[in-house]
Nucleic acid binder design. Structure first.
Lengths: 125, 125
DNA sequence: TCTTGACTTGGAGCCAACTCCAGGCATTAT
DNA sequence: ATAATGCCTGGAGTTGGCTCCAAGTCAAGA
C-alpha cells in the first residue's frame, strides 16, 4: 500500500505518517527498491494501533518508548506490559474525571433550561 | 484573596491565572485601588469552573466563547446552553472512545500476561 | 527613608504535535 | 523524449496552551 492509500484508509495525512515513522512512533515501514514506502499489513496494523492510542490521549513520547521496547524483542515483554498497565491507570483516571465533568455539564444544562423557562414566563406575563 | 492564595488553592500557577484572565477565559478579576488582584468568591468560582472544564479537555477557545456570552448577560442564556450541549456531546464521544481503548488495553495486557507465562515455562523446561 | 517582597504589565520563549515546503528522484502518460 | 505526478528528505513554520522574564509599582517592616 502506498502512503496516500494508508492516509486515506486511516484518515491521517501523509506528512503525519512520515512524521510518526521518523520519530519512531511506528517501526520503519517496508520500502520498494526505489525507496518509496509500501505499507505491509503489519505496518498498517501499527498505524491503526498508534492512531487509536493517540486518540485516547497517550503521549507520543510514551508510544515511542513502547515501540522501542517492541523492537528490542521478547526480552522486553514485562516492560511493555508494565507500560501498558501504567497507561491504563492514567486513562482510567482521565475517564473518571471526564465523567464527573459530564455530570456537571448535565446539571448546568438543566439549570439553564430552568432559567430560560422562567425568563420566558416573565416575558409572557 | 491574593493571586498566590488562589494559585495555592487551585494548583494553578499565578502566571496561568493571569493568562486566563488576559485572554478572557475568566471574567476580569476584582482589584484593589492599587491595581492588585483581589479574587472574590465569584472570581474563585470561575477559576474552579475553568480548571475543571480544561481538565476535561474543553478548548480554551470554546471556554472564551462561553465567558464572552456570559458577560453579555441574560439574553445569551440559550446560546450558552447550546454551547454546553455541544461540548457535552463531544465529551461523551471522547469518553466512549477512551473506554474502547481501555478495553483494548485490558485485552492487550492479558495477552502479554499469557506470553510472559509461556515464555517462563519454556525457560524452566 | 530605604529596602524587601509580592504584585503589575507586555512581550518573548517553550513544548508537544503536527504541518508545510523546497529541492530532488522515479514511475507513468503523451 | 518529455512532462506530469507522486513520492522522498531535511528542516522550517504553526498552533495551543502555557511559562518565563524584565522593568516597574506599591505596601509593610527595619
Amino acid at each position: 500500500m502506498t502512503i496516500s492509500e494508508v492516509s486515506e484508509k486511516y484518515g491521517l495525512p501523509p506528512d503525519t505518517l512520515r512524521y510518526y515513522e521518523k520519530v519512531g512512533l511506528i517501526p520503519p515501514v517496508t520500502r520498494k527498491e526505489s525507496g518509496v514506502r509500501d505499507y505491509s499489513e503489519q505496518d498498517c496494523g501499527w498505524v491503526e494501533f498508534i492512531k487509536c492510542m493517540r486518540g485516547a490521549g497517550l503521549s507520543i513520547e510514551t508510544l515511542i518508548r513502547y515501540v522501542a521496547l517492541y523492537r528490542k524483542g521478547n526480552r522486553t515483554l514485562k516492560q511493555r506490559k508494565q507500560l501498558l498497565i501504567d497507561e491504563r491507570e492514567k486513562l482510567q483516571e482521565r475517564i473518571e474525571q471526564m465523567q464527573q465533568v459530564l455530570k456537571r455539564l448535565n446539571y448546568k444544562i438543566d439549570l439553564y433550561e430552568d432559567r430560560i423557562v422562567s425568563c420566558e414566563k416573565k416575558l409572557l406575563s
